[in-house]
Amino acid sequence: MRRKLRRLGLRAPRTAPERVAAAVIALVVVSWAAQGLRWVVTDGMPLLVVLAALGVVGVVTWWWLRRVGAAARRERLASLRLSLAQLDAMDDKQFEFALRDLLLRDGIEARQVGQQGDQAADVIGQDARWGRIVVQAKHTKVGGKVGSQVMYQVKGTAQPVHRADVAVVVTNGSFTRDAKAWGDKHGIHWVDREALRRWAEGGTALPDLLHLPRRGRLRAAA
């Protein structure tokens, strides 16, 4: 069932508000279906008319509940704080989704894209102010270091493959000195353990953490 939902671009409800919304939708659908059946059987209304009316009601209900759910999620994410201990306890995939949620918290539309063959992109954010932000997540054991090879990979794919305006590597560990120097020289941002603490736990938005210029300023400078 979950695979079928994913193929349709949907997923099963996970949080309590999503389950409530799903229950409300189900209740509305059942209620209107019963009413439609009465119209057909009792009032002799054409079936196609009833189905069209039910379809309109269903679409409007789905749209409204989706808006309500999105607003509730934004409100929940606005106060999101993740400690380094929580991030350390995650697996690679959970870490990617956590970084996605942090971007959403910062007001940046984001989606998790990491999978086998992702070409050095695990999360992609899009924002009119900062452009397209491509994030490579490197979840390590505490004390683990990310080397220059990762920077080479990101540099080779971020802009050519993913059309990145901003490329950043994020780890809960640290970077080697060469990796940081190479990243600074070639425009690959890096977020190490201490910077991640400021972003995830302290609440500093990623664009502020990286001192990103707004795209309008870049155009003006050009």
Rank of each mutant, 00 (worst) to 15 (best):
R129K: 15
A158F: 04
R198G: 05
I133D: 01
Q159F: 05
A179L: 02
F175A: 06
N172H: 06
L206A: 03
A179Q: 12
Q159H: 10
R132C: 09
R177A: 13
G203L: 06
R177C: 02
A179N: 11
S174T: 14
G147K: 03
I188K: 00
P207N: 08
T171W: 02
P160G: 08
G187F: 04
G143I: 09
W130T: 10
V191Q: 01
R129S: 10
V142F: 03
L196S: 06
W182M: 14
G187C: 03
E201Y: 08
H186M: 03
P207G: 05
Q136D: 03
A205C: 03
M151V: 14
A179P: 10
R163Y: 02
P207W: 03
A195R: 15
R193F: 07
A181C: 06
G173K: 09
D178K: 15
D178C: 00
P207M: 01
G125M: 02
F175D: 14
G183Q: 05
A200L: 03
H186W: 14
K145M: 07
V168N: 01
V150D: 12
G125S: 05
V154H: 14
K185R: 15
N172A: 09
V135H: 06
G143P: 13
A195W: 10
H186C: 12
L206T: 09
T171M: 07
D192I: 12
G125T: 12
G203V: 07
G147I: 02
A181R: 15
D192A: 05
Q136E: 09
H162S: 14
D192M: 03
V150L: 09
W190E: 08
R129M: 07
T157N: 04
W182E: 15
D208I: 00
Q159S: 08
G183C: 06
